[in-house]
Write a protein that binds this DNA or RNA. Structure first.
Lengths: 267, 267
DNA sequence: CAGTGGTCTAGACCACTGG
DNA sequence: CAGTGGTCTAGACCACTGC
């Protein structure tokens, strides 16, 4: 059943000879066709037409659907793949990116062991300390674009590597989007937290910003991380976004860096 | 005068019907044409045929020179632009990227003021504490792929923002490549250090890796940064590379993060 | 206005995957 | 083997820059 597909056309088909294109002020902000296609594909992703892990239609099919050439679809997909929203696999097709993947696990975690690589270190142990619904503080509300006092879910947990507690973090999620999130759900789940968010709440984290500082361990934090109070810790504040730049998670972590470091690539 | 240009051709023109392509073992590692073009352009960049800031030949010219279509050159340039080696400017041409640019200054510095943006904060004050030639320690030699004991230039400096000393860093450079680098040269130069390296030593930093830790300020560092000894500081160790992944600088910085933070984007 | 990069097309062929 | 993404081409036209 062929549903109506929006047929993107460039600047309303440029009616013959209208030099100053209608009612706009200044430049009408030219948008290339492939950008429009990209936006349409993005809409399908947001709408859940294709879910994380799914195979999306082939370039040929999309070209037919949108009434453009394959090359144009290709360029749109190229950009979406560069943004890590899609994954191309030659010979198989194009898939919606997901956090459910062995080898791309911890995509957002930049902490690495000083010696050897992550795989050698083995998986992290996770202890959920708390998971409760609270009213958003002014700060949390501002970050998540909510009103102060709105309901948010707050999770506290500790991650340990080879038995050494290394990361202590709190995270806040909009209450509305994470209705069934409880301590039980969290402790029962084995994979990465963002994978859980994807499958259980339909929230896919796509991009994040982090702000790092060096801070001294408070008494409470020191106890959780088994270090002396006052020990320098790496403070990592993360804001994670879904499609369309909507912030969906605020995370505040304290990282021990005696045997690990935060790795970053500068291009 | 038309010098001989290497004419890239795909897998030796695939002689008619040779199913198991000659003497290779296993997969002969297929390399697309545009990658070969990319490599050729890279060679010209390394060789200094086009210097930072220069306009390179148009896509048409390059296509003619390499005997390929414009689209293929385009794809090669696309990747080089994505790697920040080239900069495209519509209507003008394609230029070799450079650190001599106002708005892309501090391309590798991720420290931002907590409130307001960098421009509002104004330019940093730089105090060179020392610049001397020393023998590479084992660590420095390993990082720079030299032999322990080889000559390296060591620079120490402090960067201050709005009068507050904020970054204390040491950096090591291979002595051979930085022959005329003295304290006088450094203090006389106004722009970013990587711009100086470009114009005076022909060394263009293209990529870098950083490792961050939280550490306590030593007595010496505390004095330089005007904080109490033991204050948590962000330790930033950077390895910067030229073309071809050759490491050319090791940098060890200590950042005050009481009024600044290290910002990072996760894709 | 000419020259540049940017978009779009149509078609041929190649490399990879899986049945 | 058919179907997918990946490469390459040739040509037309558009948008931007600067003379």
């Amino acid at each position: 059943m062929k549903t109506d597909q929006p047929t993107p056309r460039r600047q309303p088909s440029a009616p013959a000879d209208s030099p100053a294109s209608g009612g706009g002020v200044g430049t009408p902000a030219f948008s290339p066709l492939y950008q429009q296609i990209k936006a349409l594909i993005l809409q399908s992703l947001q709408a859940g037409e294709w879910k994380p892990g799914d195979l999306i239609p082939s370039e040929q099919e999309l070209a037919a659907r949108f009434k453009v050439s394959q090359g144009t679809v290709r360029k749109a997909i190229d950009e979406l793949a560069a943004d890590n929203l899609l994954v191309r696999r030659q010979g198989k097709g194009t898939f919606v990116a997901t956090h459910h993947e062995q080898h791309v696990q911890y995509r957002f975690l930049r902490l690495h062991p000083d010696h050897g690589d992550r795989d050698a270190e083995g998986p992290a142990t996770r202890d959920i300390l708390a998971c409760r619904r609270v009213r958003a503080s002014a700060e949390v509300a501002a970050a998540l674009q909510l009103r102060a006092g709105d309901s948010v879910v707050q999770v506290s947990r500790v991650l340990s590597f080879q038995g050494v507690p290394t990361i202590l973090e709190d995270l806040w999620l909009p209450g509305a989007a994470f209705k069934g999130l409880t301590l039980e759900v969290l402790t029962a789940y084995a994979g990465p937290m963002y994978a859980l968010f994807e499958s259980q709440f339909g929230v896919r984290m796509v991009r994040a910003e982090e702000r790092l500082k060096a801070v001294a361990a408070s008494e409470a934090a020191a106890q959780r991380l088994q270090v002396a109070a006052g020990t320098p810790l790496l403070s990592v504040e993360r804001l994670a976004y879904t499609y369309n730049g909507v912030p969906m998670e605020l995370r505040r972590g304290l990282y021990r860096t005696d045997r690990h470091h935060y790795r970053n690539e500068l291009g």
